[in-house]
Nucleic acid binder design. Structure first.
Lengths: 180, 180
DNA sequence: GAAAAATACTTTATAACTAAATTATTGATG
DNA sequence: CATCAATAATTTAGTTATAAAGTATTTTTC
């Protein structure tokens, strides 16, 4: 519980929306509702980290975040994944997967394999060379994140992780009901 | 720190894929390091909410999230903002702001105003009509988020908000040090 | 006060992403 | 078994984003 007390002390209170606030929350009014504020802050954190990772991937490996994410998912499934499944895991459209796959195939990272059981389906998997090259990137990627998030501390990280798990569940449920 | 051990971490079997895990976290192994897991979960939450808001904006107002975000920032500053400042608040490049501004000007949402004090600079501000139309969208936007996040509860929402505040600070500091 | 550096915006080229339509295949229903 | 709906991937057209280079202006430095 001591960690929490420290956190609240260090952290901006909701009223601290005055000067020097970075990102989307700049100039946010006091009476802005909590849901909107939470969403903006979530976006800010996500975008900040994203930009660090993008920048690192570009300068150190001449690649992009979408490609890395694609390869990272594939690397978890040695037998490969259907493109449809991959699009669900990455939360992007099928058309996007088609495009990324074309590129990564052309560059030798992955290969398309026809599916015997369903001829509509294509399985995509890392090539031997793709596996090898990706493992280097993945190690670096992990270290960037560890360095970036280290000051948070293990306890706060775990707590945040759990709370985001709840949020994910809630939003996931709401999305199912959503009929626009 | 054997390369072999890491390789196994990277290419773990899907057997530990807990049932029904959505998004990027699918197939994530238990021994994946905490920083990476936290980042993936943050991305998942952010993307989920983003997709709801995008979809709603499209079906109900025939507009997009980037445009909404742009207008939302402007709406907080009745006197308008310099494009440079806006690009910082929205955390996007200047070129992006130029493009969005061109469109929003063409469609009558905002207007460019030359800055007398600095002739390199342009201030952009909502038109009267832009203000009026945006206020309708903003109300709906707030309700979507309230409905979406309601099950979280006020206490958990506040706590998550504070924790993300700490994260934002930490990442912000680390970004400054970052020399790639 | 002239040269050099920094800044604000724009332009260019390209990547990533989406929604919607299309094609090919599979599954379900009468 | 024939049709109709659902599904997996692709194609197409358009939006959003980036990095890098270019232009015009301001600021700094010597």
């Amino acid at each position: 519980m001591g960690a929490m007390a420290d956190m609240q002390t260090l952290c901006n209170s909701p009223s601290d929306t005055g000067g020097g606030m970075a990102g989307r929350e700049a100039g946010l009014a006091h009476d802005e509702h909590q849901a909107v504020r939470l969403w903006l802050r979530l976006m800010t954190c996500s975008t900040q980290i994203e930009q660090v990772i993008r920048s690192k991937l570009r300068t150190q490996f001449a690649t992009t975040l979408p490609r890395f994410d694609y390869l990272a998912q594939l690397s978890r499934f040695p037998k490969g994944l259907r493109m449809k499944t991959l699009s669900e895991y990455l939360m992007v459209t099928g058309g996007n997967i088609t495009g990324l796959t074309d590129q990564l195939v052309a560059e030798g990272w992955v290969e398309r394999v026809a599916d015997d059981e369903d001829r509509r389906s294509m399985t995509v998997r890392l090539t031997r060379s793709g596996k090898k090259q990706f493992s280097t990137m993945a190690k670096a990627h992990e270290q960037w994140l560890e360095h970036l998030l280290a000051p948070l501390g293990a306890d706060a990280a775990r707590e945040l992780y759990e709370q985001l798990g709840l949020l994910r569940q809630i939003v996931g449920q709401r999305m199912e009901q959503l009929a626009d």
